[in-house]
């Protein structure tokens, strides 16, 4: 599904290399986790895959089902099936959450040559999905993320994911700022979306989230590279011993 080969990325504004040759393949139906210390390049990887400005790819490639992601505009990547759950979801005053979601769903459908969702159908679907995430009608009506608590913002990200039904879900530190109950709710939302045809890349500092979203593969990222790959037990090792041992071992 997602194939990243030898990806090198620098910041546009300053001559600083952040990713120094990332190789990673996420298969359909699998959950891959990326863990790593601060500044290792985890969030940069998520932004580069979703098409945020400010980064320059100097080498390597990233494809989704064979399509070159790096050539596409952010909205084209979304239509192709990439979804990034933001670490810090953006507040957009004046744009209603519902209006935003419906615009997004229909924009993607249009881009894929599919029929747009009617207002009635959309309402029916969103009410159902919102209920599972304990998102009430008021939250749907309010401006996007404005006045939402940290937990509400993250649940709203998962709601968007559920509505857009992407092929490749990238979760950037979705557990940050969440209490245990909120994390469970978010994890349930993610687990409900696990599917044969869908890949997940879960970026996290802590093993905690991975108790709830069980990964198939765990990668450790450090200094702009994947330095170690293993099964779920690798996350437990990090939890017990920190990163120092692993980094020393691969250095």
């Amino acid at each position: 599904m997602l194939e990243i080969k030898n990806l090198h990325v620098s910041l546009e504004e300053e001559d600083k290399q952040i990713l120094k040759g990332v190789d990673l393949t996420v298969e359909a139906g699998k959950v891959h986790a990326i863990m790593g210390p601060n500044g290792s390049g985890k969030s940069t990887l998520s932004y580069v895959l979703s098409g945020r400005d400010g980064y320059v790819v100097t080498e390597g490639e990233a494809t989704l089902n064979g399509e070159d992601l790096l050539e596409m505009e952010p909205e084209e990547r979304a239509a192709a099936g990439v979804f990034l759950a933001f670490q810090y979801p953006v507040e957009i005053p004046g744009v209603g959450n519902m209006t935003f979601l419906r615009t997004a769903v229909n924009a993607q459908r249009k881009a894929r040559g599919e029929e747009e969702m009617s207002a009635a159908e959309f309402l029916k679907v969103i009410r159902e999905k919102a209920k599972d995430l304990k998102i009430d009608a008021d939250m749907l009506k309010r401006p996007v993320n404005v006045g939402f608590s940290g937990g509400e913002k993250k649940r709203n990200e998962i709601l968007q994911m559920a509505m857009l039904e992407p092929k490749m879900c990238i979760l950037d530190e979705t557990d940050s700022g969440l209490d245990v109950d909120a994390m469970k709710l978010v994890a349930e939302g993610v687990n409900a979306l696990r599917d044969e045809g869908r890949g997940f890349l879960v970026i996290t500092h802590y093993q905690r989230l991975l108790d709830h979203i069980k990964p198939d593969v765990v990668h450790i990222m450090a200094n702009g590279r994947i330095v170690k790959t293993g099964g779920p037990e690798l996350a437990l090792e990090v939890e017990q011993n920190g990163y120092a041992d692993i980094l020393a071992e691969v250095a």
Binding site: G51, R52, E73, F100, A111, V144
Partner: peptide, 14 residues
């Protein structure tokens, strides 16, 4: 720009 990217990342055109 942050809001613009957020909207585009959900598939809404520029």
């Amino acid at each position: 720009e942050e809001a613009l990217f957020y909207l585009r990342s959900r598939g809404v055109s520029h």
